[in-house]
Design a protein around this nucleic acid. Structure first.
Lengths: 140, 140
DNA sequence: GTCAAACTTTGGATTATGTCTAAATCCGAA
DNA sequence: TTCGGATTTAGACATAATCCAAAGTTTGAC
């Protein structure tokens, strides 16, 4: 899988490096919507030679090159989402966890036609409680 | 109009005070979606005896008592919106300005019925360019 | 292989946003 | 007037994120 990552970075116009691959290996393959801090902890577990500045540099670079999306949905935390397809978001009010909601799960009418605005992108942001799921909150 | 504000605060269970009224006079009657910092500057222009701590205390109190809604939509900034009706938001990508979009302007299908989730509230967040409107950006 | 230029990483300083605390102040009721 | 609770305040603290200049690494030309 590492070779794949190298290819993806190169295709995005990013020079691969050990640090960038380590970050990519986590953040491009998670659905956990991690914050910069969480990315740093996760990656440092296996790859300790990684500074905070590099984490921010790398995440910002990935966003700029279109490998990641940056979301600001909740209290003071910027999180990153590797899912590039348009989709919606659900925020669990108890845990703060963010989940992707498939585009087709929610029908939205005629946003692009809103007059007075040229809408480039949009999403539905939902807040509430996750049912049943029983996935215990792995808290930060 | 001041008497009205006093009444609103009291009805919300908030003891009026000079500082609280000054903050209310601005933040409850603007559609500018100000951040805490902007609230402080605006209010201090006419009412200099107001500390940063009080601005935060007051805004948080208003949110808690339901006079304001707190939104986290863009780049690390928490903003406040006195519009209590459900509505959507449009973010101008150039200026960063946030505008309210009436609930009925965008049809959203069947969110509450999303299975697996109990959705308490939701909104559509749109990004793009404001057309024509010619309202010049009164910059921060 | 060697070297220089360009790129990448780094720790620490810096900025920005927001919270906390303890002391001072204000205000209403007895 | 005095008491006690609520409110305000300055400044300390916490946290997220950026900036910076020095050090390390890679690359390609020779």
């Amino acid at each position: 899988m590492s070779p794949d990552l190298i290819t993806r970075l190169k295709e995005a116009g990013i020079q691969p490096s050990a640090q960038r691959l380590a970050v990519a290996g986590y953040v491009l393959q998670t659905d956990a919507h991690p914050s910069a801090d969480e990315v740093m902890s996760e990656v440092q577990a296996n790859f300790p030679m990684l500074s905070r500045a590099t984490v921010y540099n790398t995440l910002n670079l990935f966003v700029e090159k279109g490998l990641l999306r940056q979301l600001v949905l909740a209290e003071g935390k910027t999180v990153f989402d590797p899912c590039l397809e348009p989709h919606h978001h659900f925020i669990d009010e108890e845990s703060g966890r963010i989940e992707d909601v498939p585009w087709d799960a929610v029908k939205v009418g005629d946003v692009k036609g809103l007059k007075g605005y040229e809408v480039h992108e949009y999403m539905v942001v939902m807040r509430g409680r996750k049912l049943g799921g029983s996935r215990m909150s792995k808290k930060r």
